[in-house]
Computed example of a mutant assay.
Amino acid sequence: MRAFDEGERSRVSGPWLIWGIPLVLSLCGLVMIASLSLRNSMDGGEPYAQILKQARFFVFGLVLMVICALTPLKLLRRYGWILWIFSLLLVSLTLVSGIGIKVGGARRWLALGHVRFQPLELLLFSVPIFMADRLDRSRRSGRQAFLRPTLTVAFFSVLPLLFQPNLGGTILVTGICLMMHAERQGWSYPLLGGFLMATIFALLIWMEPYRMRRLMAFLDPWSDPMNKGFQIIQGLVAFCNGRIFGVGIGKGLQEDAYLPAAQTDYIFPAIGEEFGLVGTLLLLSLYAVWTIRIYRIYRRCTSPFLSALTLGLTTSVIGPMFVNLGGVMKLMPLTGIPLPFISAGGSAMIFMWAKVGILMRINGFLNREEARHASFEGMPRR
């Protein structure tokens, strides 16, 4: 227990697990995207277009990780509010006709030349940085601390998301703010806020017919198996086909246009079909080991700002994983959130690696602080 609490600094304070596990996850995602792309290109399309595109995003994400790992934490904290406001501006621009791209009835994308960009990912990157700074600077407590800054930041962050509409993004941003507040002030008001949020979401679902149809498809997908329940059913069929060890890479039947969004939101069922229960459990174990490694960094944090920032960044990575897995495994309604490091998509891949870079910077900062403290204690006293 002592080794876990103190982080076993001599053995686990290195950064290789912080970036090594996401690297393995990203490579697994590239393999699956390549498999899906090759099978779905039999209609005459370019077989390597999707994998080459994702590989470019992967390389760019690694570059951004290095940049973030070299960025001083003081500089990141000083300009965090600018990054937050800029991300809110971009999210709001998706609502402007002619600028935002409407896909599937929602405006969540911006077009940058031939590349689509989802500002939500930048918002999920900036909110933990800005919130950590606000919580550290705030001298309020109790209800006042929950109202300002937590509820204020959460409200302005999710307001444009509600108009897109983006219920999954709203859940993630609100969850990050509540978790960071609980780390500093306790769980009383976050639990109350979570209950109110659930009530508001229930009203939003009831007010929109398409959300009600999606909820009904979640509760009973077999009532409309060829329309609203088709994707959920095919995802479950993919898991069943995989059984224990899977059917083998490139041999999944669900890849042949049976499973919609197999490269993005539904890549986990595709992995389950090709690699079986063993493959999916191995994948989940990688997320678990990474979370434990980051938790050890969190336990070593020497300031409230670093503690809140580490927790917020970790929540912004692990939260989407739970939302995605809950949707594809029929544990919660679908929200269109990709699986971190694995699903096809440039915005999520790039900013996930940026978060890894900041966590590496925090780990390096703590290592230097601990080394300085150890050398000071080892100095001979006069």
Results as ranks from 00 to 15, higher is better:
Phe4Gly: 00
Asp5Tyr: 12
Asp5Phe: 13
Ser13Lys: 03
Ile18Val: 14
Trp19Met: 08
Val31Ile: 15
Arg39Phe: 01
Ser41Gln: 06
Gln54Ile: 02
Leu64Gln: 03
Cys68Asn: 02
Leu70Asp: 08
Lys74Tyr: 02
Leu76His: 03
Tyr79Trp: 12
Phe86Tyr: 06
Val91Glu: 10
Leu95Phe: 09
Ile99Leu: 14
Leu120Trp: 09
Leu123Val: 11
Met131His: 09
Arg137Gly: 14
Thr150Glu: 02
Ala154Val: 01
Leu167Thr: 15
Gly168Glu: 04
Thr174Pro: 00
Ile176Trp: 10
Ala182Pro: 01
Glu183Gln: 13
Glu183Cys: 11
Pro190Ile: 04
Met197His: 05
Ala198Asn: 01
Leu215Ala: 08
Met226Tyr: 13
Gln231Ile: 04
Ile233Glu: 06
Phe239Lys: 08
Ile244Pro: 01
Phe245Trp: 15
Lys251Leu: 13
Gly252His: 10
Pro260Arg: 06
Ala261Asn: 08
Tyr266Met: 12
Phe268Ile: 07
Glu274Gly: 01
Leu283Val: 07
Leu286Thr: 07
Trp290Ile: 03
Thr291Leu: 11
Ile297Phe: 04
Leu306Val: 04
Ser307Glu: 09
Val317Trp: 03
Val317Glu: 03
Gly326Phe: 07
Val328Asn: 06
Pro338Arg: 04
Ala348Trp: 01
Met349Trp: 03
Ala354Lys: 04
Met360Glu: 12
Ile362Cys: 03
Gly378Trp: 03
